[in-house]
Amino acid sequence: MSADKITAKDIRAMKQRGEKIAALTAYDFPMTRLLDESGIPLLLVGDSLGMVVLGYSDTTLVTMEEMEHHVRAAARAKPRALLVADLPFKSYETVEDALQSARRLMLAGAEAVKAEGGHSIEKQVRAIVADGIPFLGHLGMLPQHVREEGGYHIKGKIEAERQSLLADAQSLVEAGAFGIVLELVTKTVAGELTRSVPIPTIGIGSGSECDGQILVTHDLVGMFPWFTPRFVTPRMNGAEQMRAAVQDWKKSL
């Protein structure tokens, strides 16, 4: 990959080269700039900001206006990385809704959009891609469905889920998605799915056989100490370091 702006086409090409894709979430200007300077090729303004930034209980409470606000902040960093934004809950129920919502996020500064689902949103994905907007899929555990599912559950443990995941992935490929996030999918099924599709899979809690990995940055650096997913090993204790720095400054007054 050159030093030029990274595109969805570049991300897709990384799979063909066997190059692992590192992706992280970014919700504001400084974090976007720091992660971009660290060489992360794909940054996601995820609706996970609902929990780790806004204090909501889950992603279903995040509004389009809030997503636009955070996309604008991240876009001001002018990252070399591809900047992807989540379509929030209930913003892509119909083809018309999906197109309008995707266009709003692109106007805010996103360079691609992501939404949850496979065959059920195939028409929406086709319309978004036909409009010239790169689309990143999301299969497995779907956080926007956490309430109806009664929590976060690993997918692919039973044959019906395996078949559904494979079929949904094929639907996204045929609709024109440039990649698929796999959240909480069994390692075996995630590996099978990765080998079966021509576009990259980016796992989160789905094992090491995906083409790449994505994490919530706050989890990676220990900046949300009140909850850490079981599949995450924080690489630093940012919250404790921050507390220590603040306390040290306070003592120096």
Rank of each mutant, 00 (worst) to 15 (best):
residue 1 M to C: 05
residue 1 M to W: 08
residue 2 S to C: 10
residue 2 S to I: 12
residue 2 S to G: 12
residue 4 D to H: 07
residue 4 D to M: 07
residue 6 I to H: 10
residue 7 T to L: 05
residue 10 D to P: 06
residue 13 A to S: 10
residue 13 A to Q: 08
residue 14 M to Q: 04
residue 22 A to H: 04
residue 22 A to L: 09
residue 25 T to R: 01
residue 26 A to W: 00
residue 26 A to I: 00
residue 26 A to Y: 00
residue 28 D to F: 01
residue 29 F to D: 10
residue 31 M to C: 05
residue 33 R to I: 01
residue 35 L to D: 08
residue 39 G to Y: 05
residue 39 G to V: 02
residue 40 I to P: 09
residue 43 L to I: 12
residue 46 G to T: 02
residue 49 L to I: 14
residue 50 G to A: 06
residue 50 G to K: 03
residue 50 G to M: 02
residue 50 G to P: 04
residue 51 M to Y: 01
residue 52 V to M: 12
residue 55 G to D: 14
residue 58 D to T: 13
residue 59 T to V: 14
residue 59 T to F: 13
residue 62 V to T: 09
residue 62 V to R: 07
residue 62 V to A: 10
residue 63 T to W: 04
residue 65 E to Q: 14
residue 66 E to G: 10
residue 69 H to R: 13
residue 71 V to C: 05
residue 72 R to L: 07
residue 78 K to A: 15
residue 79 P to G: 12
residue 80 R to P: 14
residue 80 R to Q: 15
residue 80 R to A: 13
residue 80 R to E: 14
residue 80 R to C: 14
residue 82 L to A: 07
residue 83 L to T: 04
residue 85 A to Y: 00
residue 86 D to R: 03
residue 86 D to I: 05
residue 87 L to V: 08
residue 88 P to V: 08
residue 90 K to M: 13
residue 92 Y to R: 02
residue 92 Y to S: 02
residue 92 Y to P: 01
residue 93 E to H: 11
residue 93 E to W: 08
residue 93 E to Q: 13
residue 93 E to G: 11
residue 95 V to C: 00
residue 102 A to D: 01
residue 103 R to I: 13
residue 104 R to H: 15
residue 106 M to L: 08
residue 108 A to H: 03
residue 109 G to K: 12
residue 109 G to A: 12
residue 112 A to R: 08
residue 122 E to P: 01
residue 123 K to M: 09
residue 124 Q to F: 03
residue 127 A to N: 03
residue 128 I to V: 15
residue 130 A to P: 11
residue 131 D to L: 08
residue 132 G to K: 05
residue 134 P to N: 14
residue 134 P to G: 12
residue 135 F to G: 07
residue 135 F to S: 09
residue 136 L to F: 13
residue 137 G to I: 05
residue 137 G to H: 03
residue 139 L to T: 12
residue 141 M to S: 03
residue 142 L to K: 15
residue 143 P to Y: 09
residue 145 H to W: 04
residue 145 H to L: 10
residue 147 R to Q: 14
residue 148 E to V: 08
residue 148 E to W: 00
residue 152 Y to A: 12
residue 153 H to P: 04
residue 154 I to W: 08
residue 155 K to V: 12
residue 159 E to N: 12
residue 159 E to T: 15
residue 159 E to D: 15
residue 160 A to T: 13
residue 162 R to S: 04
residue 164 S to G: 06
residue 164 S to W: 07
residue 165 L to M: 08
residue 167 A to F: 07
residue 167 A to E: 09
residue 171 S to K: 01
residue 171 S to A: 10
residue 172 L to A: 03
residue 173 V to W: 01
residue 174 E to I: 09
residue 174 E to M: 11
residue 174 E to P: 10
residue 176 G to K: 09
residue 176 G to N: 10
residue 180 I to K: 03
residue 182 L to P: 04
residue 183 E to A: 07
residue 183 E to W: 06
residue 185 V to W: 03
residue 188 T to S: 11
residue 190 A to W: 01
residue 193 L to R: 00
residue 193 L to P: 01
residue 199 I to R: 02
residue 200 P to Q: 00
residue 200 P to M: 00
residue 201 T to Y: 06
residue 202 I to M: 06
residue 205 G to H: 00
residue 206 S to D: 09
residue 209 E to K: 05
residue 212 G to T: 11
residue 212 G to K: 05
residue 213 Q to I: 05
residue 217 T to F: 03
residue 220 L to V: 11
residue 227 F to W: 01
residue 230 R to K: 15
residue 231 F to D: 01
residue 235 R to C: 15
residue 238 G to I: 07
residue 243 R to D: 11
residue 246 V to Y: 13
residue 253 L to C: 11
